[in-house]
Design a protein around this nucleic acid. Structure first.
Lengths: 338, 338
DNA sequence: CCTGGCACTCTTCATATGCGAGTGCCAGCG
DNA sequence: CGCTGGCACTCGCATATGAAGAGTGCCAGG
């Protein structure tokens, strides 16, 4: 186990390195932090920390920088979450309150997060899995063509075209619309398949084909849309990443374009609070030199989606975690109100 | 006026520079292109071209590189549009045909363009201005709360919430829905205001407030959604930009995040064919070292939106223009079919 | 266990130097 | 008049060399 002072040293190293972006040496440490001991002592502590794998030196005779393991310890034991100041909170609230629809909420959230953290922001659209159906609308566009519109309680709208096997009258359509809504409106997506299972039986044989097709399209939509959408922003902040650009930034940009990768990344964080994945903890190679700070958010108590930021492992964790948490909280409020 | 050979020299310089990314000298030119004259002659031509401002040398005693003006001449007079090969066409078509809905079409188009051109792709969602209304749906969510759903002929769906000044019965709602659709279905957006102007008069006085409110929300939606959306992709290709990274790439990333900037950029191109804006021709500062190749696309003959790519001024113009044009063509087809 | 001192290692920066690419100009030739 | 070969010149780039500085590890003493 590491002594109390050694933890202090690690904390100081992380803080200084995050601030200056340069390897930090023993002398500088004693000058900037009142640790009450001499550089030589610090050197011993540093050697110990290095043995344990918490810090490393880029090249012999340079200062130390934290390793992923070092950041992990820092985040877990040494740093809290830095709460937002009152003015910051007000600014967040004001900015988000101006949103006019769901897309706008997400767009504003992305901008806000990117600006607050000066990093790349990622916001997942509210998930459908846990959402409920607000309304299903059916529109006849042609005798044998129906448009299906699904509206969720988060305000999301999805539409699909259905080509019917046989012409489908307005009366049947109205009937189906009414029956469908009375069964699924207000229900959870996961319950829908069960609820509509026997619906075709209520219709004339010649309409059953169409009804089944509409239903299967509806179910498809529910499943497909589980492949969440997300929005990213603040990629220009990547330019502050490091000096050795192209090699660092490219895989990150590539990873950010792979929505699948990002969704998996966000999805993996099961923690109820703020989750931090540091460097190599991220499965995707391109993100091995980045950390991902994410948190769930939702309109009620339940989290329906995730949001977070992607930045260099050398980031201000307490501040970033604070910003992410605060934004998630306010977005939740906004969603609950609308 | 420049002699024929000097134009040839300019063309050769552009081609070589685009290929190698290095300033091209007189000797290299004669070796790689059969111009039939000696390096010395080329040197004279180069001096002339430089006097006219078509080429420049980064530093004394280096080869020449084209200036924006040089690229302009190249694009206007010296280069055609390189058509896609048959396999490429097939690939484009196959890739786009898999799309299931409008979002998917746009997403696939972005990926495709980015891959084909190895540059940043920008695709504007089909515009509403020139679109027609397919259907307007009204849903009663609460006695005094109505959801308005607008469906366009391009398959786009927009929804808005309307808080009514007074409770609004199902019967009135159905009435309004029917009247509204009989008037606006199939009509152009721009005609809608005129068409619904006198609609409140047909209703009971106590319902008129609500009707007006629904109508004004509808009109707002039409206008607001004129602020087009767009999707970008392939930003990882920016890493191939140049060697002097951070300074070059940052303003570009920033510009790309300002959708307003991009929309203006695309909007400015009035040309019926492929439009190329080179370097400083782009109003936005951040894009002064990039060229934008764009073209309109649409389901019918009419262009309803733009798509294009953003890349370094040093790009393969004929190839890029060919790819952009081809993709636009096929997207138009896909949209017309659906 | 902490401290000051000391020798050692390595990176970084500046300066110097040679090389090569490419130019501009000129005199001569068709 | 235009093209050509030759030649001197300029400059950027890369490599080498050396001095400086930062930081370490270790050790002996308090």
């Amino acid at each position: 186990m590491l002594s109390e002072r050694r933890l202090q040293v690690l904390r100081a190293i992380v803080q200084d390195y995050v601030g200056t972006e340069e390897p930090v040496g023993s002398k500088a440490l004693t000058e900037r932090h009142s640790l009450g001991v001499s550089p030589a002592t610090i050197r011993n502590d540093m050697a110990a920390l290095e043995d344990e794998g918490f810090i490393a030196q880029p090249h012999t005779s340079a200062g130390r920088i934290p390793t992923d393991k070092g950041y992990r310890l820092f985040v877990d034991k040494l740093a809290g979450v830095k709460p937002m100041t009152a003015p910051e909170r007000r600014a967040i609230q004001n900015f988000l309150e101006g949103a006019v629809d769901l897309d706008d909420v997400v767009a504003r959230t992305v901008r806000l997060l990117a600006q607050l953290t000066r990093q790349v922001a990622v916001v997942q659209y509210p998930s459908l899995t846990r959402s409920t159906v607000r309304h299903v609308e059916l529109l006849s566009l042609a005798p044998a063509r129906v448009m299906l519109v699904l509206i969720t309680d988060t305000g999301r709208v999805e539409q699909r075209m259905v080509d019917c096997p046989a012409p489908f009258g307005e009366a049947s359509l109205a009937d189906l619309r009414a029956r469908l809504n009375s069964r699924v409106a207000g229900r959870r997506f996961t319950d829908v398949p069960m609820l509509v299972e026997d619906l075709p039986d209520a219709f004339d044989p010649e309409d059953r084909g169409t009804v089944s097709m509409v239903l299967s399209t509806l179910l498809e939509t529910l499943v497909e849309e589980n492949e969440e959408r997300l929005m990213i922003g603040g990629t220009a902040n990547l330019t502050r990443f490091g000096h050795d650009f192209p090699l660092t930034i490219r895989p990150v940009l590539e990873a950010l374009e792979e929505q699948v990768v990002l969704l998996k990344l966000l999805g993996e964080a099961k923690d109820p609070g703020v989750t931090v994945r540091i460097g190599h903890e991220n499965a995707h190679e391109g993100l091995n030199s980045t950390s991902v700070v994410s948190v769930g958010y939702g309109s009620g108590g339940e989290a329906v989606a995730k949001l977070g930021v992607v930045g260099p492992t050398r980031m201000d964790y307490p501040g970033t975690m604070g910003a992410v948490r605060a934004v998630a909280r306010y977005v939740g409020q906004i969603l609950a109100e609308s």
